[in-house]
Write a protein that binds this DNA or RNA. Structure first.
Length: 512
RNA sequence: GGUGAUUUAGUGUAGCGGUUAGCACGCCACCCUCUCACGGUGGAAACCCGGGUUCGAGUCCCGGAUUCACUACCA
């Protein structure tokens, strides 16, 4: 049944902080699958833990998904026929279904306090609230329903627990892992609802919402695999097995070094972002770096993330969002966790930067120029775009543009000592003085034309090509690197070129 | 501890009984070259271990080990 239904998937984050890059990938896979099948992508906010609510987190999620181009069809902002899409606004619904479970004897009231439970866990090693222990606890099964009602009427706080029958093999059919079978005896009587805040826990809310929202495929992280059997049991208890969604548990994103799941802290520890957008923690005031602010292009992040745990089945790596949508499949999802490789991410960004039109990169460069005190208006769009075009093969991030192309906008005030030592000889100032005349006499500043003249002058005078060219470069760029020399001078023009050579002669002192 | 998942170069992965085990990032060398890049060429580098099945196993089966996740009135 589930296979013939309309594809409806959901991304269901908790607003407990910034959206983690692993969560972004889960959202992406949901999105790709939805688009591929002409389905619906739902964004559901799972805020059933009132204690962990973080202001700003929901906005962050929306902004991050929007930046990455992960479109949402139904959600808090988008609306839809299956709302509300925020769990804290669905209390009435959950109450109704909790009652259904209670009435059918599939759940019961429990009065044990968190303190009592903690004490029990200390006292009994590996304590589990289940068929073997529930009768020794304070609940409507051990106390009797009448007694339980009295306690509730007296205002005692309670929870509703799911009654799990032991010793049943529960099968979870996972689209990338096959059948996973586990025995129900290792599942505890999970808390489904807490009277203290009149809210369900994840498990209940999740199943009810997925059912009501007619979700066809549950695509989520592998950390949910152990609780999937519980979810299957819940679908059974509700009598919804016919329409139970298909399960897909994605491999986790792991730390690049060491062990374990990629965590919030790894970013700043290892020097790369683990969040899509920069995040300012409202409580601690801490700032965590984001891909957007680090100069990543959203298409590159999407492409990189898509390939972490999935492949198209061939050697292709640079894939547009449309290609990803077309090619995505669970069959080609890997099963093991993927270590996050920052270097590869950098390479992807580089590829996308190379492919991006110079004019677009120029627009991204302008604010950076301004931030460095450059009066951007003094330069034409064309000048900026051409400068960007000359250096983009050597950048990984938009932010690298300043380092690589800054000299097009500000003449060097310092010169690389290392390069001076290597290329600025005793006779260099004299040769540079001659070069001024040569450049001044240039009728055509076009790269090739200028190159022909200057190179001929060098060879006619028997000068050392490398030394002269690098000294020239030193005066114009400030160090011995950058694009083809005559591409630079073509763009800068005769006047500026000569001015820089003059400044170089005055300011560069050879140190023997 | 228990349960489940997992396992091909440093990393991400292809492979779906017979391949010199492919690709990409990173690394090294050379070429290009006025420099730094880009690009090109080449190189080092992998089937977790042990049993089986088979003429033949990275591919199938069993056992072990590994790593990861879960084991909350968190998701």
């Amino acid at each position: 049944m589930a296979n013939t239904r309309n594809v409806r998937v959901r991304f269901a984050p908790s607003p407990t902080g910034p959206l983690h890059i692993g969560g972004v990938r889960t959202a992406l896979y949901n999105y790709l699958f939805a688009r591929q099948n002409g389905g619906t992508m739902i964004l559901r906010i799972e805020d059933t833990d009132s204690n962990r609510f973080v202001p700003g987190a929901e906005d962050y999620i929306n902004e991050a998904l929007a930046w990455l181009g992960i479109g949402i069809d139904e959600g808090v902002r988008e609306g839809g026929d299956f709302g509300p899409y925020k769990q804290s606004e669905r209390r009435d619904i959950y109450r109704r279904y909790v009652k259904q479970l209670l009435d059918s004897g599939r759940a019961y009231y429990a009065f044990d306090t968190p303190e009592e439970l903690e004490a029990k866990r200390k006292e009994v090693p590996n304590f589990q609230y289940d068929a073997s222990t529930r009768l020794s606890m304070r609940n409507s099964l051990s106390l009797g329903l009448d007694e339980a009602r009295k306690l509730i009427d007296a205002g005692e706080k309670y929870v509703v627990r799911f009654l799990v029958e032991p010793n049943r093999d529960v099968t979870v059919h996972d689209l990338i892992r096959g059948d996973v079978v586990i025995n129900s005896k290792i599942i505890d009587d999970k808390v489904l609802y807490k009277s203290a805040d009149d809210l369900p826990t994840y498990h209940l809310a999740n199943i009810v919402d997925d059912h009501l929202m007619e979700v066809s495929h549950v695509i989520r992280g592998e950390e949910w695999l152990p609780s999937a059997p519980l979810h299957v049991l819940l679908y059974e208890a509700f009598g919804w097995t016919d329409t139970m969604p298909a399960f897909v548990h994605l491999p986790l994103l792991l730390k690049p070094d060491g062990k374990g799941k990629l965590s919030k802290r790894d970013g700043d520890r290892l020097g790369f972002p683990v969040f899509p957008l920069e995040w300012h923690d409202p409580k601690s005031g801490d700032v965590s770096s984001g891909y957007r602010e680090a100069g990543y292009l959203p298409e590159a992040v999407v492409n990189f993330l898509a390939l972490l745990g999935w492949n198209p089945g061939d050697d292709r790596e640079i894939l547009s969002i449309d290609e990803l949508i077309q090619l995505f499949s669970f069959e080609h999802c890997s099963r093991a966790g993927a270590k996050f490789d920052f270097e590869k991410g950098k390479w992807f960004n580089h590829q996308y930067l190379l492919a991006k039109p110079d004019e677009e990169l120029a627009e991204l460069f302008k604010p950076i120029l301004a931030a460095h005190g450059v009066e951007v208006a003094r330069f034409s769009d064309e000048y900026i775009a051409r400068a960007v075009g000359l250096v983009k093969s050597r950048i990984s991030f938009v932010g690298d543009l300043w380092e690589q192309a800054g000299f097009f906008f500000v003449a060097p005030t310092e010169y690389s000592p290392k390069d001076i030592r290597k290329r600025w000889k005793e006779d260099t100032p004299a040769i540079m003085t001659q070069l001024i005349d040569v450049v001044n006499g240039l009728e055509d500043m076009t790269s090739k034309a200028a190159e022909d003249v200057v190179l001929k002058w060098i060879s006619d005078n028997g000068y050392h090509l490398g030394n002269v060219m690098n000294a020239f470069r030193l005066t114009v760029v400030g160090e011995c690197r950058g694009p083809h020399m005559f591409d630079i001078t073509e763009l800068m023009g005769k006047e500026e070129t000569i001015a820089r050579i003059k400044r170089g002669i005055e300011n560069i002192k050879c140190e023997e």
